[in-house]
Amino acid sequence: MDYIQIDRTNYMELILHKFPAFRTQWAEHLAAWNLPLARPIAVDVTEFADFAVVTIGHGIDAEIDRLAEITELMLMQDDPVIDYAFRTLFLEQISLGTKRGGVAVDRFTHKLRPLGSYHWQALDLRVGIYPSGVSID
């Protein structure tokens, strides 16, 4: 995986490039935003997390591989907002969404690379919901 400089202005372009199936949901998301203020990145990242949960539950292995790859790539960025949004919000939304939907999150977590795995384990400890299903004694 090549390192690409990503920030708040271009991260969604990369996501849409890697996940063409997300384009329709993204267009609907944009159309639904009718407030007179700028959309926070958290709202957009949550929309992508919803897509990720469905992909984890019903997608093919290649899609889940790309999801793990994009997660790692976002965590490698120098932009603190992108880093925080994916390190906390994105992973937490995946954890909560997969639990609600009865989705086997291990399809995703087993494919996470070192940085993604580190932050997933930190989520286990920080949130106390043990998203990986492993109990900590």
Rank of each mutant, 00 (worst) to 15 (best):
K18T: 15
V127A: 14
D61V: 09
S117A: 06
E92R: 04
R66W: 04
E47I: 12
R126L: 14
I82N: 00
Q77A: 13
F22R: 00
P36G: 13
L123A: 01
Y130K: 00
S135K: 13
I129M: 05
D7Q: 06
M76I: 12
Y3D: 07
P131L: 03
R113T: 15
A21L: 14
M76S: 08
L75D: 01
I129L: 04
E72G: 00
D106L: 10
M12K: 12
L75H: 04
A21H: 11
A49S: 03
G116C: 06
L35D: 14
G102T: 08
W120F: 01
W26G: 02
F19P: 04
I64W: 03
V53Y: 00
D137S: 07
Q93S: 08
E72W: 01
R23V: 13
W26V: 12
A32G: 04
G97A: 04
D44T: 15
H17S: 13
A52P: 11
I56C: 03
D106T: 14
R107C: 04
D78E: 07
I82E: 01
M74D: 03
P80A: 05
N34P: 00
D44L: 13
I56G: 04
D7A: 07
Y118C: 14
L115H: 03
D44N: 15
P131H: 05
L75M: 05
K99M: 12
L14C: 00
L30N: 10
I15K: 01
R100F: 10
V134Y: 15
E72I: 11
F22E: 03
L67C: 09
W26T: 14
E13Y: 05
E47R: 08
R113H: 12
D61T: 09
I6K: 02
G133A: 02
T109C: 03
T109P: 03
I6P: 06
R23L: 14
I6C: 05
Q121S: 06
D124M: 11
A27D: 07
P80S: 07
H29T: 12
T55L: 13
H110M: 14
G59D: 07
V105A: 09
F51Q: 07
Q77R: 14
V127D: 09
L16D: 08
E47A: 14
L35E: 15
V53N: 04
R8Y: 02
Q25G: 12
P40W: 07
I4H: 05
